[in-house]
Design a binder for these strands. Structure first.
Ligand code: NAD
Ligand code: NAD
Lengths: 236, 236
DNA sequence: ATGTCTTTGTGAACGCGTGCACAAAGATAG
DNA sequence: CTATCTTTGTGCACGCGTTCACAAAGACAT
């Protein structure tokens, strides 16, 4: 953190670490739950437990946003909800387009938690002409050719890709050209994007493989003889 | 990512860093593509580009697995595919249960890439009695009461949770009690698990919020458009 | 065998993230 | 007002992960 002694950061916190940003939604969720229960304040210890993190980490995270706590008491739940929401940009509306309305795309469209936090499905799009006009989650599927117009008309800056891997890069290029600058990619591909465009990926297959790695290691630790087929040991 | 694996004893286990493990599936995917094209060898530079990472990082990652490259030539694609597969534990079969066959659970069940890499759907489970017996992706939905028997009979060690958030912890507890030691959680909840159980989460909402944060920052930095520093908002 | 050329494997430096530990801040009670 | 008690905010140290940069290894040609 900067060497500033002022209580309030003069400018909007420019330097929020990426790791902190990734945890803010977690805190926000826990805080929202508390808010619904009309809990007025919460200590860093309680909130940290609810969010599944270390309390020192949580306090440091909040310190990047400013000093919103009261020593001896804790944090004001409502105020913190507002501050984090604002920091994450959730006080405004984010229209989103979902491209590829297959199994996954349809599930995403039906996902309630989508709209709950400022994210609004502006359009569902698919290349399959047979799908065009069909209602999914109350919205008509639009043909991919309308993408550019929809993105512009709705000021869409976030796109979700749920097409097969083979089509993902092409869809990505079109989204970017149309003006989308944030992409959430569910297809198992590494997307190539120009500077200034953010991509985040959700990859089921990778998650499972990571779990398998640890699972194998756990299985190998117990009992197995010294010559198991559990790989890779560095001689100490 | 959030794995309950953060408390590693001082013992420097088999050296593979967590960050490296998380990238191995990425390399494997790129290598599999090369393999299908019958490319015999690949340099760290080429492979790194395909995987979207830095070549030095890739070489260091591979160095944890051993010295599988040939200087002046590169890496043998087939050999590397095998080594990484073995390291990740993909040379064996991993039966998986999916709990909660709603929108998302059904999409997961239909997901082809699931079975492609040693992961086999052992059972689909749901608490809704009306779903019991219904075929999803060719498999009958089983009632949640059969969970313990199915986990034991099929030696299931990996469970996928796709239930509503409110049911996730309860389902998690049952999975763990039944013997599952790795969980992939799609519900927006922080799961509490005992030592030795790995949890990875996939959280659409969090990903979107992270994108929104950066999007807001991008919009605020350069006075974009006629609306000033606050991006245009759709009228309600 | 010798030299040249390519590419690996890794030492070292650096930066980020984490967690400990504690002084300071403020609430609360007397 | 003073004392006590709770909890924040953060300085600091440490470890992990990333990246640079280069010597060593090996292929290949002559
Ligand atoms: N289903 C899952 O649970 C799951 C899980 C993880 C990852 N994924 C990935 O998500 C993606 C979608 O999976 P799915 O099961 O929904 O597949 P799907 O085949 O059911 O749906 C894909 C949809 O994309 C459409 N499409 C194809 N090319 C297009 C294009 N150029 N432009 C617009 N639309 C196009 C198709 O018409 C189809 O409707 C795949 O890449 C898959 O690997 C799926
Ligand atoms: N749909 C999405 O794209 C999406 C995206 C991100 C996250 N999620 C999360 O994934 C979860 C599932 O989403 P969904 O859209 O499929 O919901 P859904 O309501 O369509 O399906 C939930 C299913 O879980 C079953 N269920 C409820 N309690 C259960 C229990 N105790 N044991 C077993 N099964 C039980 C229900 O019968 C239902 O079939 C939710 O937590 C949601 O927040 C969904």
């Amino acid at each position: 953190m900067a060497t500033s002694r002022s209580h309030r950061p003069a400018t909007r916190s420019r330097g929020i670490p990426e790791a902190t940003v990734a945890r803010l939604p977690l805190y926000l969720r826990a805080l929202t739950t508390l808010s619904e229960r009309s809990v007025p304040t919460v200590s860093s210890e309680e909130l940290a437990t609810a969010a599944g993190v270390n309390s020192a980490k949580l306090r440091k995270d909040f310190s990047y946003l400013g000093s919103y706590g009261t020593r001896g008491v804790g944090y004001d739940v409502e105020y913190l909800v507002y501050q984090i929401s604002r920091e994450l940009g959730l006080t405004q509306d984010w229209p989103v387009v979902i491209v590829g309305i297959g199994n996954l795309g349809a599930a995403l469209a039906n996902y309630g938690g989508f709209a709950s936090r400022g994210f609004r499905v502006a359009a569902l799009m698919d290349a399959d002409a047979a799908l065009a006009g069909k209602l999914v989650a109350g919205l008509p599927v639009r043909h991919i050719d309308e993408l550019e117009a929809i993105v512009e008309d709705n000021q869409v800056s976030i796109g979700v890709i749920a097409t097969p891997a083979g089509a993902a890069q092409e869809v990505c290029d079109r989204l970017v050209t149309a003006g989308v600058t944030s992409i959430l990619n569910f297809a198992p591909t590494v997307l190539q994007v120009p500077e200034g465009v953010d991509v985040r990926k959700v990859d089921l297959s990778i998650e499972l493989q990571i779990l398998a790695f640890h699972e194998q290691r756990k299985a190998g630790e117990q009992g197995q003889g010294p010559d198991g087929d559990v790989p890779a040991v560095m001689p100490a």
